[in-house]
Nucleic acid binder design. Structure first.
Lengths: 383, 383
DNA sequence: TCCATTGGGCAAGAGTCCTAACTAAGATGG
DNA sequence: CCATCTTAGTTAGGACTCTTGCCCAATGGA
């Protein structure tokens, strides 16, 4: 919380920042409206808008306000403020979008992946989607946010293959692929972390305006979770926080085994892979009666995860998502076991089910883009 | 990151803030020195100092600088800025201190506790120590920071008794006891979290100026840990993050058991209690040869904790502390097992061994006190 | 004693904000 | 169609803060 030096320049940039933020919250405003929204006087706002127009960050749209009294001329953020690139990479396909500072999707492209073609088709698909978005939006891409369905190294942004865990997307360096198209920083993280962000935005925890503390358990082909502490997704030193495949839990016959091995012992892995066979798990759940051994074994194993999560992160709630994590029979069984633990934690299914990783990444891109636009106006030091 | 409204008042308060911070970093300065340190011009600093003297936050010490040139009059923070109370509560005794904005301990008191007298002697001991510090310092206590050797509820500040875990200090509401002596907020947290803060200050992790991500495993009568993520101790929703007693790990004979039960099965608990018998553990370690079964069983159980910590928090390093956690034989054995895990994590003994919880709490109190002093100068909104 | 050196104050100037009053221009209603 | 109301934007004046440059005061060394 170091403070900036007091100077008249600082005051001026603060005024400009208020104008920009007002124009991000409202697509178009007259100068009088900006003054009303920000609480700053009309002459000061007029000056600020003039400076921003000169800088090319704001434009006079040529439109005029209607209503009683004199019509005011509308101003808006200039298209030159640019857009942010949002990319989602899953085994099913690559989705790329560009969003402007209002959160509007300017261009988007979806390239499905043929699973049998192997991991090496990912890079060309990414390039294809990227090219379409670049030509479709026509504006400069000032930063990128990438969601990938694999663990991500926090420093390099590369996808990481952990032992005994599936490598769904495969070896990939998204920053290198995006470098030519995106002029600014590229933030890469795994899909579960972005999905957790979407859940947070949807009001999953910390609804009382406070800081969110929850854990998002994502149970699909891979086994992952996101830890949200004090309102932020915590990635850990190298970005591998939440990679729970090797967590020690209670396996069949009460023995201590790693979570990933439970699926091997129950025969729930896809042939020749360490990935969970989602279809098989779901069909087992569908047929399950009370006391079904597979259902019980999975609930026992995951309740060990709940125990670890409660002990280390103390979440307000644990959110269940993923291809089989939200199945009603499983959630019910897990709740029964959770209630019997010495420390219980509420378990709820995820709120967002349609592409949560994409909306979370989009929200992050939007926030980053806005900060970047504001930052162009305060050169010397931050406030 | 909402910004303050631009106003001349903001500029003025920013100047005053710089003066205050300069006088916190250096016990006494002339106005010319303040101008040199802050980079603000001399007339502006003179004005700011005059205003702060009028407010009673700064005093002319009456002393004069020496050296070449004209002697300048020294200024310093006024004693009226107050002090912060720091309290450490352990089964061994209660320590209370008051620190001024420079980090100088103004008064301190230590009241040992007779363990056999039971938990009910804690409150009177706390009152005694508190009374001595209040009369010894003679200045107002503007806030309090309390370290307690038990889990702490984040909202209420009360100590919490978890099932199957020892309750060392016993039921206590530190805020209620301190309310009459401290005029401001009282922050209560458990000793392990404060000790982790001290380790961080000692440069344990994130030494490259970056944000620290590490876990502090505290193995003593109680079993606890602190999770430091992105440079801050993360407490979780209700403050119970790091209470690992119920973590599922590998117990004797390879069965899945909770960490606290391992000690019961090995006969390492104090009679009639859920607390670990530290003396017995240490003597077992002292006699242990290679392959000693107790040493091995404990290392196995704790390596399960390492596994969970790695999976969920992904620390740069795991710091071992507490009465038996730093024993060389144990650390060596744990390192051997850690190296064999699919995901390894460096394990190091704690750097700070003398009252780490106290120095961590003191650092927090100092930081809070400084912020509080600075806050008196910026009334309208924060920067 | 003289002088270099440093602390502190004064004056002038530039820049930012605000209030208040003014002009400009569309909407309303008879 | 015109007078009136209402609102947008500009201008003028004043208050305030910061900075630069200069002066004076006071101290220690030559």
């Amino acid at each position: 919380m170091s403070s900036a030096k007091p100077s008249l320049e600082l005051l001026r940039s603060l005024t400009e920042e208020h104008v920009l933020r007002a124009l991000m919250d409202h697509p178009r405003l007259t100068r009088a409206e900006i003054a009303a929204v920000t609480g700053i006087s009309k002459p000061t706002i007029s000056d600020g808008v003039r400076r921003l127009v000169d800088l090319g960050l704001v434009v006079d749209t040529g439109e005029w306000s209607t209503g009683r009294g004199r019509a005011g001329s509308y101003h808006a953020l200039a298209p030159g403020c640019g857009t942010a690139l949002v990319v989602s990479i899953t085994p099913q396909g690559v989705t790329a979008e560009s969003v402007d500072p209002f959160g509007t999707v300017v261009a988007s492209s979806d390239v499905p992946l043929d699973r049998s073609a192997g991991a090496y088709a990912v890079t060309p698909a990414l390039r294809t989607a990227l090219g379409r978005v670049v030509s479709g939006s026509g504006r400069r891409l000032r930063l990128g946010v990438v969601s990938a369905a694999d663990p991500v190294d926090r420093d390099t942004g590369r996808l990481v293959h952990l032992p005994d865990a599936p490598f769904l997307v495969g070896d990939l360096d998204p920053r290198a692929v995006l470098a030519s198209a995106v002029e600014g920083p590229v933030l890469v993280d795994n899909d579960v972390n972005w999905a957790a962000r979407a859940e947070q935005a949807a009001g999953q925890a910390g609804a009382a305006g406070g800081s969110a503390d929850f854990v998002y358990l994502y149970l699909d082909e891979g086994l992952g979770c996101a830890v949200v502490s004090d309102g932020e997704v915590r990635r850990g030193h190298s970005g591998l926080a939440g990679e729970i495949a090797h967590l020690v839990t209670e396996g069949p016959e009460g023995r201590a085994v790693r979570l990933t091995e439970v699926f091997a012992r129950l025969g729930l892995r896809r042939p020749g892979s360490t990935a969970v066979d989602v279809e098989q798990v779901r069909s087992r759940f569908a047929d399950a009666s009370d006391g079904d051994p597979t259902l019980g074994a999975l609930a026992t194993a995951v309740s060990g995860v709940l125990e670890a999560v409660t002990a280390l992160a103390d979440p307000e709630v644990v959110v269940l998502g993923g291809g089989w994590g939200r199945e009603a029979a499983f959630v019910d069984e897990l709740r029964r076991r959770s209630a019997a633990l010495p420390r219980t934690v509420p378990v709820v299914p995820a709120l967002v089910d349609r592409e949560p990783q994409l909306s979370g990444a989009r929200a992050a891109a939007l926030e980053q883009l806005r900060e970047l636009v504001v930052a162009t106006v305060r050169r010397p030091d931050r406030v």
